[in-house]
Write a protein that binds this DNA or RNA. Structure first.
Lengths: 209, 209
DNA sequence: GCCACGACTGAGCAAGCGCTTAGCATGCGC
DNA sequence: GCGCATGCTAAGCGCTTGCTCAGTCGTGGC
């Protein structure tokens, strides 16, 4: 199986919950097209074509092209938030939780770099109300990470001068994986997660031995 | 003077070398428009309008809309490379040079976040030949940073397990400043540079006291 | 005074955009 | 067998896009 088909399979799996089948194929096609060319450079004809349908079919399942972006954005942000909250609520020291959080968050941005690229770099293309909803999900993700870093700092595990600034930097580092990661690069998503967890522990002054 | 006019002034200053005046106003207008809405969402009418000219005037000074992006991209990448090479060639320990490099590189991405946003996030909109030229400038920037980190690791100043991976992460961290930085935020570009230099020294296991 | 020339505009072209509409198959309840 | 909802397509509408071109304006050389 070639890299192309593999990715298509992965995209399909990611949207397995969407029904009916045509709607699922459309959202999968949109993810691929948006990630490849950007939202504004993607045409509704392109999306429909990739899904094997006529341009008009798109509008039976989605009101506008922006709604497709919004659905992708909500699903992606919810998944990212879930990953972060799973790590935040885990047992263990702050260093354990930070390590888990960064490893999972960074490797998700590598593994699902197509979806991640869209949700991180096409925010401005969302409508105003949709943007506000997404911004709330983003704030919640940020707060979870900040709390871990604050906990570690309070407990003396970390040595961090600027907790909000460091939180911002760690999030930014993980998010930007979606920009540079490619499936044919020399690192697997897991390796990226490992590397990043190690680097971030260094950033907060709690490098593991 | 309002924030709007201030930014316009800064943009004008950045492109002060471009002649004639109309070409300079056009490239400044393009920087603002591309950074605000993205390349594909910006129309040539918008650029010309911001420069106080008719749509046709653009084509006297630039062959296509893509040429404007290319000029912005070359200038921006050359400036970023110059910043990196100044730090790389400086006197001092590897930690000194890394600190300088990150401080200058990150704060440039904050200070000139409009230009930086374009050159970092609109690469795919470049034509093939133009892209190849830009990719070369990027590789040179990467190499300079990697050499600093390699030097520090060889000298025992740093403790880095994966030099190319860490280089990628540091560059990614600095570059992504352009995505989240806004002039009305609570951090100045210099403060971002200071914070990031400190965090990166931690990443390489050489945190200053 | 007049011409040549570069800078610029108003009008507009061909192509492509997001999206709509009318109509056609298919499959279900009865 | 029939009516009808559903999922889809072919055609195309109104508009915007990047870009062009004929012509106007202001200016410097002679």
């Amino acid at each position: 199986m070639g890299a192309e088909a593999e990715r298509t399979d992965q995209v399909a799996e990611e949207w397995a919950g969407v029904a009916p089948d045509a709607a699922q194929r459309l959202v999968g096609a949109a993810v691929e097209a948006f990630a490849e060319r950007g939202y504004h450079a993607t045409t509704t004809r392109d999306i429909a074509g990739r899904a094997g349908m006529s341009p008009a079919a798109l509008y039976i399942h989605y009101k506008t092209k922006e709604e497709l972006l919004y659905r992708i954005s909500v699903t992606g942000h919810e998944r990212a938030l879930k990953i972060m909250s799973a790590a935040a609520e885990a047992e263990g020291t702050a260093a354990d939780r930070l390590c888990r959080a960064v490893r999972a968050f960074a490797s998700w941005h590598a593994e699902r770099h197509t979806t991640a690229r869209i949700i991180q770099y096409e925010l401005k293309a969302l409508g105003e109300e949709h943007y506000a909803e997404i911004a709330d999900l983003r704030r919640r993700t940020d707060r979870l990470l900040r709390e871990i870093i604050q906990d570690g700092t309070d407990a003396g595990e970390f040595s961090v001068r600027d907790v909000p600034g460091t939180t911002l930097a760690v999030l930014s580092l993980c998010v930007d994986v979606a920009r540079w990661f490619t499936a044919d690069g020399k690192r697997t998503p897991d390796q990226v997660g490992e590397l990043y967890a190690d680097l971030v522990l260094g950033m907060v002054g709690a490098r593991r031995p």
